[in-house]
């Protein structure tokens, strides 16, 4: 059984033997996009977070076969649309994670990157509570969150200093 998904701006054919597969499964096992991680398969950990029509969701809870016609953005889409002029393949959020030491094992990072892009594209200057709430669905068991919060603050400061850098990535893919 085949159907089409639009992932990171590209139409992808999905050949699937069973239509009960989650979007996470299809992204990883059918389309080879390993950025979205699977840990809990029940929407608890946020490691599989993607944007579905611009809305942050757990891809493990999305039935892939119900998503044709939707725009899916994964962490691979975030990186690919960053501006080469900045001398990096990474988006500003990803770069801030690296610079702030917000990545240890890296498993939760793709989901957190999506969650932070989602937050900062909606709320350019979130307060501390808004940041914590926005990442509350993304479990990290090694950094202790301090440096993740620091990374978010860096992005806020950078975007404030240079408004032309705002909201790269997500908005472009969705367009």
């Amino acid at each position: 059984m085949g159907y089409q998904l639009r992932v990171n701006g590209v139409h992808r054919e999905v050949e699937s033997e069973w239509l009960g597969e989650s979007l996470l499964w299809v992204l990883r096992e059918r389309l080879g996009l390993m950025g979205s991680k699977n840990a809990c398969e029940q929407g608890e950990c946020g490691s599989c977070s993607v944007l579905l029509d611009g809305v942050l969701v757990c891809s493990c809870l999305v039935l892939a076969a119900s998503a044709p016609g939707c725009e899916v953005v994964t962490v691979e889409g975030i990186a690919a649309t960053s501006e080469p002029a900045l001398g990096s393949e990474l988006s500003d959020v990803q770069r801030a994670f690296v610079e702030a030491g917000a990545v240890q094992c890296g498993f939760c990072t793709p989901g957190l990157v999506l969650a932070v892009h989602d937050l900062l594209d909606r709320v350019p200057a979130p307060d501390e509570w808004e940041i914590r709430e926005a990442i509350s669905g993304n479990l990290c068991r090694c950094t202790g969150y301090g440096r993740i919060l620091e990374a978010v603050r860096r992005v806020i400061a950078e975007r404030r200093a240079d408004p032309t850098v705002t909201a790269r990535g997500v908005a472009e893919v969705a367009r």
Partner: peptide
């Protein structure tokens, strides 16, 4: 299937194997 936050957990864990789903 509405938001999937209950049904997809059941499907992912093999607790429910629907013949048909209406999204």
């Amino acid at each position: 299937l509405a938001g999937g936050t209950d049904l997809m957990v059941e499907v992912n864990f093999g607790r429910r194997r629907p013949d048909a789903i209406v999204s």
